[in-house]
Simulated assay, not measured.
Amino acid sequence: MIDTNDENMLLSRRTLMAGGVATGVAAGLPISAMASVATPPGSADDGALPADPATRAAIVRRMRLRHNAGHVFWWFRGTSYAQQGATLIPLCGMVFGSMIKVTPRDDGGLNVIQYELGFRTDLETGERLEKMRNPLTGQMIEIPFAPVGPTAFSYSATNDLILPEMIGGSRFTIEHIPELFYRAGDMVLFQYQSRATVETKGKPDRILNDLGNIYGPASEALDANLPTANAWVQGTDVTDYARWLQMPPGMGTQTLRSIGQKVFRFEDMPKDWLEMITKADPKMADDPLAVFDREEATYRN
């Protein structure tokens, strides 16, 4: 039975990767949400999940971020499509990284700083694209170098999210659907779904939907002695087109399918992403943690 009165902290996918804001999807933002332990039809749930809200909130924090001070890094990769009805038209690949600095407070809350950077890639070679031909319009378009952040936000001791009024000069309004959080064999998983509206002065609003699953070993996710745990993600974004694609009205929507992983060192991020960082932003490659002290970049998606 789903208890919709059980309030926990759940972050949308790219707070961990988020890929989120930088790709122009809802996952780029952390959100506060309702979470429940549920047994989906046909699942192998063995009833081994704790029932109390505080323990569940601790599990999610352990999987998404960490309880102690330090850094986590999320990467994901996937394919972006133009979607027209049920037809998917490949646009480009994506390799994305999110760097997150976590600082616990004495009151039980968290201060968080997040920096995100994604690269669009050739569908055949995997090489970074700086230009691409829009397959629907035939137009050759420039792909912006568009990091997001560093974005500072926080959580209260009761996991209420405190976001800045503006992020990179744009306003994000988040709507959230309650998560399903459950056990399947040796894995703990939770499903998430969110919708964001992005308002940028002088540009049309964008609707960004983000949905997927975050999962990890139960032996780590349920271990109260561990400050953080290994985790993976599988996600789908369904959004209005990124503005830089210059799509005329009526051309459908944009869809991204991706997989990803949480790691604990910058050097453990995907090799191709690290190589693209070295070429595109040598200062970041030389001193990656210094990005948390940069001025906030303008949101360009």
Rank of each mutant, 00 (worst) to 15 (best):
A58M: 10
R171M: 13
I89T: 05
G24D: 05
A26G: 11
G93V: 01
P41N: 01
Q83L: 01
M94Q: 14
M1S: 13
P249A: 08
T121E: 04
D3A: 09
M284W: 00
M34Q: 14
G252T: 01
S32T: 15
P104A: 03
C92M: 14
G78W: 00
A221D: 03
M94L: 15
Q114M: 13
T103A: 10
E130V: 11
W273N: 02
G85D: 01
G19H: 10
V233Q: 05
E295L: 08
V263S: 03
K201L: 14
V37M: 10
V148N: 15
N68V: 14
T298I: 14
A152R: 10
N209V: 09
W273Q: 03
R105Y: 05
H71L: 09
P270M: 03
Q139R: 13
A82S: 06
T15S: 14
M132C: 06
L88F: 00
V21Y: 06
V233S: 08
S98P: 10
A57C: 07
P144E: 04
G235I: 07
D122E: 01
T55H: 06
A196L: 08
G250V: 02
V188G: 00
P227W: 08
P144H: 07
S80M: 13
V60Q: 09
P204G: 04
E124V: 12
T173L: 08
R62S: 02
L16S: 14
I31N: 13
A242Q: 12
M34F: 14
R128T: 07
T121G: 02
D293Y: 09
A196R: 04
V263R: 03
P164S: 08
A69C: 08
V291Y: 13
L10T: 09
P249N: 07
G78N: 02
V291H: 10
R64I: 13
R77V: 14
P50D: 00
A27S: 15
E116L: 08
A290I: 10
D281S: 14
F172R: 06
T298H: 12
S36H: 05
